[in-house]
């Protein structure tokens, strides 16, 4: 982390952000700031736009036909949607872990160093070092250090997800986005991932989308509540969960819908 930045600096800022899929509007005037070095959770009922907003941060929505963004969204002060911005560059700075673990059908080693290779890194030592570092960070090193050249397909589901996290971490992003990373995993793996998140935050800014409120309460420092494409409430996790400001937030937290 660069000096001078602390938990009170914003790494991502959204201002009046609208998002359209063709005719349909999915996000309405989102205005929020993500604090550097903290774990922020996005919660809300299904279809509320939290994953959509997440994908705006690394412009993965560009892959969808008819996607349109208006408003302002900045990363470190730079406009993310500016035509001059290099998207490839952006995606290296913003890592992503998906809901369904998606390791490549390559060896574990190749999976981890993939991001470095495509960035042009060829030096063997650098790659090896990065591989070990990332796997350790993902708490996977001890389990796979003897079989780095074996296919990643042979790992279990939870290990897959940790591999994906290692892969994301290897390129040293500034911010890691996680879209419901544990929803396809069993409770033990989930716990492991949650521990990982707690460890990683501090060095990395984490944004995690989750439909599991307890998980959000466990791992995040701040929480953002989305409802029907609008940002309802945002604030420190403990405060939001114990005394939510808005009625919709309280309804959601008490399980009245979603």
């Amino acid at each position: 982390m660069e000096n001078g930045d602390g938990p009170d600096t914003l790494i991502v800022e959204a201002e009046n952000l609208d998002f359209h899929y063709g005719e349909k509007q999915a996000l309405f005037g989102i205005g929020v700031g993500i604090r550097r070095g903290l774990a922020t959770a996005f919660i809300g009922p299904s279809g509320c736009g939290k994953s959509t907003f997440l994908r705006c941060l690394n412009r993965m929505n560009d892959l969808v036909d008819g996607a349109r963004v208006t408003g302002r969204l900045t990363l470190d002060g730079e406009d993310v949607n500016s035509p001059e911005l290099d998207v490839i560059e952006l995606r290296r700075r913003v890592g992503m872990v998906f809901q369904k673990p998606n390791p490549f059908p390559k060896s574990i080693y190749e999976n981890v160093v993939y991001g470095l290779r495509i960035a042009g890194v060829r030096d063997r030592e650098r790659l090896d070092a990065a591989c070990e570092r990332s796997l350790r960070r993902a708490a996977l090193w001890e389990e796979v250090k003897d079989r780095l050249r074996e296919s990643a397909m042979g790992l279990s589901g939870g290990q897959h997800q940790r591999l994906c996290i290692a892969r994301a971490v290897a390129v040293r992003p500034e911010i890691i986005l996680m879209d419901e990373p544990c929803s396809a995993l069993d409770p033990r793996s989930t716990t492991k991932i949650e521990e990982l998140i707690t460890e990683l935050k501090g060095d990395y800014t984490i944004v995690i989308v989750t439909h599991n409120m307890q998980q959000a309460a466990r791992v995040s420092d701040r929480t953002v509540f989305f409802y029907e494409g609008k940002l309802m409430e945002e604030g420190e996790t403990r405060r939001l969960f114990t005394s939510p400001g808005r009625r919709e937030t309280e309804d959601y937290l008490t399980g009245r819908f979603g």
Binding site: R93, G115, L116, A119, G120, V121, R122, V171, R172, P173
Partner: peptide, 8 residues
């Protein structure tokens, strides 16, 4: 953050 090699 990793800076890319060579290719601008």
């Amino acid at each position: 953050m990793i800076s890319p090699e060579n290719k601008p």
